[in-house]
Design a protein around this nucleic acid. Structure first.
Length: 257
DNA sequence: ATGGTTGAAGATCAA
C-alpha cells in the first residue's frame, strides 16, 4: 500500500498533473496540500473518474488540504487541529482509510522570520505536537503526512547559507519538528535513505532550481510504531517534478505491507 | 541588495 504526500500548488491549475500521477502510480492514499480552492470549486470529477474518493478542507485562494483514497471513501475524523491557532486557515485534515489513520498537513511557511508569521508557525507546531501525542497514545497505525515547511537537518538542503534566514531552516523550526519526531514517530524517507545526499522533495520555480538540483526536503511522512512496523519502502517520485507545468513539490511516498 | 516564478485573486499577496 502506497501513501503519498503531494503539495499540488493549486488543484485547479494542476488537476491534469494529478490525473497523470494517479494513473501512473496507482497509490492507495494521496494527501494533498495547497489546493488553493474552496470546497465547492474542487474539480472532484477528475479523480472520482479514476476510482478515488476524498475528504477535503478547502479554502478560497490559499492553503487547503485533502485526503484521497482509492476504491473506498475515507472516514473523516477531523478538520483543523484541536485548539487550532487560526481556524480560518485550512491546514489539517484527518481521516481513516484502508485501515490506517492518516493526516494531511500543510504547516505554516513562517516567512519572514521575526514577524507574527513565524510565531504562528511555532504556535501551530506546538498544537500539532499535542495532537500527535494523543494519536500515538491510541497505538494504531497512523501516518502524519504533508508539507511540514521544515528542513530537518543540514543535509536536507542544497545550501545552508542560502537558507540561513529562512523560516524553514531556523533552529526553532527544526527543534519543534524534532520534538514531534522524538515522541516516537518514524521519518519514513530518512529511514530508507540514511546516507542519501540529495534527498529533496521541493525545488523552487526560480533561478533554475530544478535544473541545478537546488532543492530541499520539507515533505515528510511520520509513522507511528504500529505503522512503522509495516513499512516496506519510501521515496520521492522525482519524475513528476520534471513534467510540464509541474508543482514545485514532488510527490513523496511511503509503502506499507 | 536584488531578482528570479507561479497561482489565485483581482490592481497584490503568499509561497
Amino acid at each position: 500500500m502506497k501513501i503519498v504526500s503531494f503539495n499540488i500548488n493549486g488543484i485547479r491549475a494542476r488537476h491534469d498533473r494529478l490525473t497523470e500521477y494517479l494513473e501512473k502510480e496507482q497509490p492507495e492514499i494521496v494527501c494533498l496540500q495547497e489546493l488553493k480552492c474552496a470546497d465547492d470549486a474542487l474539480p472532484v470529477e477528475h479523480f472520482e473518474a479514476q476510482g478515488y474518493h476524498g475528504v477535503w478542507h478547502g479554502q478560497k485562494g490559499f492553503n487547503g488540504v485533502a485526503i484521497l483514497s482509492k476504491g473506498e471513501k475515507p472516514e473523516l475524523r477531523r478538520k483543523g487541529l484541536p485548539d487550532d491557532p487560526n481556524p480560518d486557515q485550512s491546514r489539517y485534515i484527518e481521516a481513516e482509510a484502508h485501515g490506517v489513520v492518516v493526516a494531511s498537513i500543510y504547516l505554516p511557511n513562517g516567512n519572514p522570520i521575526g514577524t507574527e508569521k513565524f510565531t504562528y508557525k511555532l504556535d501551530w507546531m506546538e498544537q500539532l505536537r499535542l495532537h500527535a501525542a494523543e494519536l500515538l497514545a491510541a497505538e494504531r497505525p497512523t501516518v502524519l503526512v504533508g508539507d511540514y515547511n521544515v528542513i530537518p537537518e543540514d543535509r536536507d538542503t542544497y545550501s545552508r547559507s542560502a537558507m540561513a534566514k529562512d523560516a524553514l531552516f531556523q533552529p526553532e523550526s527544526q527543534q519543534a519538528f524534532r520534538r514531534i519526531v522524538a515522541q516516537g514517530w518514524t521519518d519514513a524517507l530518512r529511514t530508507f535513505h540514511p546516507d542519501e545526499k540529495r534527498l529533496y522533495t521541493f525545488w523552487d520555480y526560480q533561478r533554475g532550481a530544478w535544473q541545478r538540483d537546488a532543492g530541499f526536503r520539507i515533505d515528510h511522512l511520520l509513522c507511528s510504531p504500529q505503522a512503522a512496523d509495516r513499512l516496506t519502502g519510501a521515496g520521492v517520485d522525482r519524475w513528476a517534478r520534471g513534467e510540464e507545468k509541474a508543482s514545485d513539490h514532488a510527490p513523496t511516498w511511503a509503502s506499507f505491507e
